[in-house]
Design a protein around this nucleic acid. Structure first.
Length: 275
DNA sequence: ACGAGCGCCTGTCGGC
DNA sequence: TGCCGACAGGCGCTCG
């Protein structure tokens, strides 16, 4: 489910609280339950519970698609993968069958990691870099300049779409925002990264940023049965719009498969050179 | 270095 | 109605 804008939205609501739901800042973890052991990466349930209990939540932020929750002495890292979500709910609310991890916090609240497909993971580590160390640059940070992005692209010989999905190359993009960014930049997902011109690299970086920022502004996208509350899905240019008209030229949007991922393009706006 | 294929899981949807 | 395949916002692994 979540890509950068959805994770950013979740981090902000856990940090700041929202209507009918407290901020987590300063809250101690009073008890923990592990309902699906494989949700925990590199730690057994008993050790996890012992170690996290009593630690106080210092902050909630994001790096790529990871939620980062610094505690008194360790850091809790959460990756929601395809179907995960972090919910704040009352302790007397019945446990959903998809809850995998539950942390009890004061005043009758709890944090629930809900994840139907069980792909999500949580880490409890002293050093967050041990998990986050290999991530590529943040697309919205100023240190990712056009010059740097251009040389990153030219330094690889890869199809643009799988490259943008590679979290070691750039952090936070997933299937939706990659398709949207490539369409906005009028670049074909199979174009080789070493063939991208400087101007195209500049346009692509600009497109990535504008799509991510609009996603954040709209609090992410809500699709299918995994609903989050954002409404960016109503503003998609190509994603899941197969057969509908391109917003720029009216040509029907095409669906193809790239790296075993459903991929959406406008065949008129996104042309592969020499084809 | 790169891409394809597959495994991990559960749920939904469309076709028959 | 039931069954069956395709598909799903991710990522790590193996194999050429």
């Amino acid at each position: 489910m979540p890509e950068l804008p959805e994770v950013e939205t979740i981090a902000a609501s856990l940090r700041n609280g929202k209507q009918g739901q407290p901020s987590l800042l300063g809250m101690p973890v009073q008890a923990a339950q592990v309902l699906w052991a494989r949700t925990l990466a590199g730690i057994e349930p008993d050790s996890f519970i012992t170690r996290i209990t009593g630690q106080i939540i210092q902050n909630v932020h994001r790096r790529g698609k990871f939620l980062i929750i610094p505690l008194s002495s360790d850091t809790l890292l959460v990756h929601l993968r395809m179907s995960g979500d972090l919910l704040i709910e009352r302790q007397d609310h019945p446990l959903d069958k998809h809850h995998r991890l539950v942390l009890e916090i004061p005043q009758g609240w709890r944090i629930a990691f809900n994840d139907a497909r069980k792909f999500g993971r949580a880490w409890l580590v002293a050093e967050p870099q041990s998990v986050l160390g290999a991530l590529g640059p943040e697309p919205l940070e100023d240190d990712l300049t056009v010059d740097r992005f251009f040389s990153m692209l030219r330094g690889k010989r890869r199809q643009l779409k799988p490259l943008l999905l590679d979290q070691k190359f750039i952090a936070g993009l997933g299937n939706i925002y990659t398709d949207e960014s490539l369409n906005l930049a009028r670049l074909h997902p199979l174009l080789n990264s070493e063939q991208v011109s400087f101007d195209q690299a500049a346009l692509l970086l600009d497109s990535i940023r504008s799509v991510l920022q609009e996603g954040i502004r709209r609090q992410g996208a809500s699709i299918d049965w995994v609903y989050r509350g954002g409404d960016f899905q109503n503003y998609f240019r190509v994603y899941q719009r197969t057969g509908l008209g391109c917003l720029s030229c009216g040509t029907p949007v095409q669906r193809l498969s790239v790296g075993q991922r459903g991929t959406h393009i406008c065949p008129s706006c996104q042309v592969l050179p020499g084809h």
